[in-house]
Design a protein around this nucleic acid. Structure first.
Length: 422
RNA sequence: GGAGGGAUGCCCGAGUGGCUAAAGGGGGCGGACUGUAAAUCCGCUGGCGUCUGCCUACGUUGGUUCGAAUCCAACUCCCUCCA
């Protein structure tokens, strides 16, 4: 494993990645650098299709592919249609339903929409392509596979990888099934090298062992030299995994998370993370970033707004990003109503009658249960048109409509929903 | 195959017959302070629109008991050691 050496990198791709903090480890930095310099190469990253959208946790990987394309190379998005069919190996909690073919197809369609925002797909030399490992994994014959490929895997060597060493040191069990995951992923790489002349696999640092196995297998079977590159595992400065908020994961699909909420996620970045996130999640130049991250005290809020708008622009487009920024500006800086806050329609007759506050909070998604809504309100976190309410059963009706013709319902200071009669 | 240990709420982890919706911590949510930040302090953290009430919950199923997370039996899964 070679540590990143930012000094003598020549290819645009690696220079950019290195400067922006995307690189954790690389199997052979120098050789990869020269390959990249000689001409366009194909590189891939694998994604599971266990949900119909990706979230912020996969964003670094997506950005890697985007930079790859931007610097003149060809991204391959590998969907784990084959591996997703196997499902989670540990059935410890409860026998979870296996995902059906239809669900996998549905999820792939959703994920495809995400990638369409970040990459340009097509048939051109640097156009991205999407492939599915079910195409070659589905019909593998066990014995044949073992004889052809199993012989190339040394258990001794596989045991030496950090990913499993930790498990072994802690004396926790490592199932044989997990070993096969590693082998299947290695096979993917070899297959992509054969089919599409793919030279590089990227992924999170947790994928290192799997990637290295793919590099080795490809060398043994095809006598081709391929490379692996991993990105660091991202946490916030407070040590929290990225991408979780009140509503759950920070999804990249608009159907799963509104553009406004996506913008808010970045706006709420911790001070200490601003520079790092600007490099990873926007395409601003180093000079601009240095200017932004140098801001001190309350000024750094301006940098956070830039971060939010830039990151949102990549995912949802400039127009939507700026609209979200404007909505937030009105909501937080003018403390005024904005018609663009997420809204929820309630049938007019019900509003005429009046709805108890806690039921309304539950219904519009500001609380997950009636009790939670009651506790929220009793704890002072419920607001009606910016006025704190203390009675959890307070009847909310048409008489609470404000000048804009809606009712602004808030949980805490940051989550607002406009209730509109319909 | 044999011996021993274990399974507790979102996570970690206490609890060995009633005082247990279950200590403590983490995480999360809300409040105060701020800058829509961090740190700090405070509150909340299974569900149920009638609430000194009901329901659900300590791996699963059954049993003992007035009463079980706690005792017994069988089962499932995990770990350690031996073969």
């Amino acid at each position: 494993m070679t540590a990143p050496q930012k000094t003598d990198l020549r290819s645009e791709f690696l220079r950019e990645l290195s400067a922006r903090g995307y690189i954790h480890q690389c199997t052979d930095m120098d050789a990869l650098d020269s390959k990249l310099e000689k001409g366009p190469i194909s590189a891939y990253i694998g994604f599971d299709c266990t949900a119909d959208s990706l979230h912020v946790g996969s964003l670094v990987q997506i950005m890697l592919l985007r930079w790859l394309q931007k610097t003149g190379h060809k991204p391959i998005v590998l969907m784990g249609g084959g591996t997703s069919k196997v499902g989670d190996p540990s059935f410890k909690d409860e026998a979870r339903k296996l995902i059906t073919e239809e669900e996998i197809q549905h999820n792939m369609d959703g994920i495809k929409k995400v990638f369409a925002k970040y990459l340009t797909f097509g048939d051109g030399p640097t156009d991205a392509v999407m492939v599915n490992n079910a195409d070659w994994l589905d019909n593998i014959n066990y014995l044949e596979f073992l004889r052809d490929y199993g012989v190339h895997f040394s258990v001794n060597r596989m045991l030496s990888f950090d990913s499993v060493k930790l498990r072994l040191d802690r004396e926790q069990s490592l199932s044989f099934l997990e070993f096969n995951y590693m082998i299947l992923q290695a096979y993917d790489f070899m297959e992509l090298n054969k089919r599409r002349d793919c030279l590089l696999q990227m992924g999170g640092s947790d994928q290192w062992g799997n990637i290295v196995n793919g590099v080795d297998l490809t060398r043994r079977i095809s006598q081709n030299e391929v490379y692996g590159l991993t990105s660091p595992l991202l946490t916030t400065s407070s040590g929290v995994k990225m991408g979780k908020t009140v509503g759950g994961a920070v999804w990249l699909n608009e159907e799963r998370l509104s553009v406004y909420d996506f913008w808010q996620y970045w706006r709420n970045t911790e001070d200490a993370d601003v520079g790092r996130f600007l490099r990873l999640f926007t395409e601003l130049s180093e000079a601009e970033i240095q200017k932004l991250e140098a801001m001190q005290g309350a000024d750094i809020n301006e940098a956070k707004k830039v971060l939010a708008t830039e990151a949102t622009r990549l995912c949802h487009g400039l127009e939507a990003a700026e609209a979200a920024a404007e909505t937030a500006r009105k909501a937080f800086e003018e403390r005024s109503m904005s018609a663009d806050l997420p809204s929820h329609d309630i049938e007019k007759p019900r509003l005429e009658e009046g709805i108890p506050a806690f039921l309304l909070f539950k219904e519009i998604g500001l609380a997950n249960s009636n009790s939670e809504a009651r506790k929220l309100i009793k704890g002072g976190g419920g607001r009606l048109n910016d006025v704190q309410i203390k009675d959890d059963s307070l009847s909310i009706s048409l008489s609470d409509l404000n000048d804009e013709g809606s009712i602004k319902v808030s949980a805490g200071k940051k989550r607002h929903i406009l209730v509109k009669p319909a």
